[in-house]
């Protein structure tokens, strides 16, 4: 799939995925979730996100689509590197990698590799900018595109952050993003589309201390590190 709008959507949805990874990233790797203080509000959550420089996690995604008789399930790994590099590596059922850098979107699957310059479309760039702002914990900028609602039941460590697009074209592509977590760990991301389709991504084995070597950075993110 090589298209301008598709990559745009891809960017948008990845933005949601990425947000999840980062929240995971700031959460403790182990320990009693109830003992960990959860963020008081969205601002506190974004403040934690801003502290993350790199992470790795595993994911399982289920897509419930009206077009398909049964949900599609994919499994793989997520890799994040500040500032704004994210690789979504699918291992099952079909190997595929989707990489976002500050300037490009690269899709690699059995059909080959496609690189799209995100800067050729302002709309596309808008979405990616949103993504970068999630990574950087830029709540103010995100608030320009999304309405945010942070809910946390009393006496519980769990919380939900719901991002609702404010205007088109975001509203035409996505109805809401729901990030759920415990403490400061994001455990689930639900993407709801206007059509009723939804995808549920469950995140586990988050390693917020993951440090990528120069070779890994080049292989995963296309970053050339000067030695």
């Amino acid at each position: 799939m090589r298209s301008w709008l598709i990559s745009l959507i891809c960017s948008l949805v990845l933005a949601c995925d990425t947000a999840a990874q980062q929240v995971d990233d700031v959460a403790p790797v182990a320990g009693d979730a109830a003992a960990v203080e959860r963020p008081r509000d969205a601002s506190a959550l974004f403040a934690k996100l801003a502290e993350v420089k790199s992470l790795e996690a595993r994911f399982v995604e289920e897509k419930h689509l009206a077009l398909l008789a049964v949900p599609l399930t994919s499994r793989g790994r997520l890799h994040y590197q500040a500032p704004g590099y994210l690789a979504r590596v699918v291992e099952e059922p079909e190997p595929a990698t989707l990489l976002i850098t500050p300037k490009t979107l690269r899709v690699t699957d059995r059909n080959g590799t496609e690189t799209i310059d995100l800067r050729t479309s302002n709309t596309l760039r808008l979405f990616v900018t949103s993504l970068v702002r999630v990574f950087s914990g830029d709540e103010k900028a995100l608030a320009e595109s999304y309405a945010m609602r942070f809910e946390a039941p009393p006496g519980d460590a769990t919380w939900t952050l719901t991002l609702t697009p404010r205007a088109a074209p975001l509203t035409e592509m996505i109805r809401a993003l729901e990030l759920s977590g415990t403490g400061v760990t994001v455990t689930t991301i639900v993407v709801r589309e206007p059509s009723g389709d939804r995808s549920v991504m469950t995140i586990r084995d988050v390693d917020p201390q993951r440090v990528y070597t120069a070779d890994e950075q080049r292989a995963l993110f296309g970053i050339t590190v000067s030695r």
Binding site: M1, R2, S3, W4, L5, I6, S7, L8, I9, C10, L12, V13, L14, D17, K63, L65, A66, L67, L68, L72, S74, R88, V90, P93, E94, A96, L98, V107, D109, R110, M173, I174, V191, E193, S195, D197, S199
Partner: peptide, 27 residues
């Protein structure tokens, strides 16, 4: 394959009337 990716948001909108995904090619 595409539906299995985050791109499904667009594909699922276009595909019911365009399984060959002609419009994305035009774009």
């Amino acid at each position: 394959d595409t539906l299995a990716t985050p791109m499904s948001a667009l594909v699922s909108r276009v595909a019911p009337g365009d399984p060959w995904l002609v419009l994305p090619s035009v774009f």
